[in-house]
Nucleic acid binder design. Sequence first.
DNA 1: AACTGACCCAACCGCAGGTAG
DNA 2: ACTACCTGCGGTTGGGTCAGT
Length: 326
Amino acid sequence: MGRPPCCDKVGVKKGPWTPEEDLMLVSYVQEHGPGNWRAVPTNTGLMRCSKSCRLRWTNYLRPGIKRGNFTDQEEKLIIHLQALLGNRWAAIASYLPERTDNDIKNYWNTHLKKKLKKMQAGEGDGGEDGGAGASEAGAGAAAGGGGKRPSVPKGQWERRLQTDIHTARQALRDALSLEPSSAPLAKLAAAPQPTPPGSTTYASSAENIARLLEGWLRPGPGGSGGGGKGPEASGSTSTTATTQQRPQCSGEGAASASASHSSGAAANTAAQTPECSTETSKVAAAAGSAPAFSMLESWLLDDGMGHGEVGLMTDVVPLGDPSEFF
DNA sequence: AACTGACCCAACCGCAGGTAG
DNA sequence: ACTACCTGCGGTTGGGTCAGT
């Protein structure tokens, strides 16, 4: 039978989140930890459906999310992974711990798809969609199924997962090998990005909230009118935010950030993020992206290469020289 | 200065898988 | 074994912003 709606359509607020709502959500998650989303709206009084709460948290409020411009390296990695895994954004995102699947998806749809198409056109009419689209199908093939989650009998699931992992590792290896200086991701991540100040922000929830509140409480020019979608929500976090590459979970960063904004709730809640202990090697990753990248890198490179699994790897047909893309 | 279209991103929607009862 | 519920995922959309005219 059809599933019931995840939440009643009546009385459920939709649209952009307000800073107040963010605060409520963050406070709740800090206290209870992420999960049990069903209970969030009732326990917090938020007029949002559970799904919306979860999405808001995972895509925006969760500590350790890196916002802003994608680096070349990230871009290449995404292209490779997309080619290999297809539109399995969650899987791809797992290789970019600081990026959300939604972010990657958006970036792919808005930038990379176009970019690749352009390349294709430049190379001469290849098949429509060529690199991207074709790879989408091909990716599925490489991964053992379709681009979209194919219905794979359970017995094959494991093997497929394994294949996915190997293909992804290969992708990363390829991407890494692009770096002329052979500087691995760690180096790249550690080095200050040449992006303009504020373009790349590691947003802790507290910082987010603080910024949001700041904008919210101080009606900006042109009448903020309120919406979360206003300059505060998107602008401040992605483009106009000040560069704050500081540790997420140290407590110090978050606390100090919000302390200056007198948003006590955010301050003390963020300082003791449960995320820090559980979900996050990812967050630790954000804390200093370098360690995370190097961990990822070493995992990808050490493992797989040294083991008998290489056999599987050899089945993977690597893409053409990725540098062709650029 | 006003208008228009393209771009971008946060959020929504519906489906599928997993799991507890 | 079955059902209902919860969560995760990918596709799509709404609307704000920006750049060009």
